[in-house]
Amino acid sequence: MEEYQTKPVSLPRLGEKAPDFDALTTHGKLKLDDFKGSWLVLFSHPADFTPVCTTEFIAFAEIYPNLQKRGVELLGLSVDSLSSHIAWARNVEEKTGVKIPFPIIADLSKEVSLAYGMVHPGQSKTETVRCVFIIDDKQIIRTILYYPLSTGRNMQEILRIVDALQTTDANGVATPANWNPGDKVIVPAPNTQEGAEERVKQPGYECVDWYLCKKQL
């Protein structure tokens, strides 16, 4: 633990290129470059054959078709072996009928986990915490979520973030708190006094004031 605390750890940050990897997975050797052109949700889980992770894997498998519709691929990771991942995926299918359709990285060397800052020694020195990296089609990190070991992730929130990011990219807008597809979006605030005066008179906008205006897409 001391070793981790004293060593400066470089964590990926939003807006930066996602760290490259060349990893052994349940679908063969995969590189980050293999996902170029698609969005990617890269997520880590603490360990195979554990209860919270099993519920999450079933939930990830369930949202996978919805992610694919949005041009998003899924890639899991833990520091377990390839055999363990394969056995666990088979067990999940056998016991629940849910097939795990996406690849899982076997990061025994922790090369990928450390590059992505997925090991948090305050939570566990040996396992990865529940991280989610949403990486866009240009391989830029757009969202990072960290959940503790005891809390399973919210899949609807992951879908919502993907929708929000893709809506933002396509329309040059922002999304307000609790936004969901179909809701009004935020128009970027003007940055001149003249722009502010024009903004409040703009038809079709719902404005609280010049800096907070919404519109329907």
């Binding site: 679908h27 995969l30 470059d33 293999d34 052109g37 698609s38 691929e73």
Partner: peptide, 21 residues
Amino acid sequence: AEKVAETTGVALFRVRSGLRD
């Protein structure tokens, strides 16, 4: 690789990885 993915219905990342192998 894109054409192979389109023709086969195999995900592009798997096609790229498979072609490498």
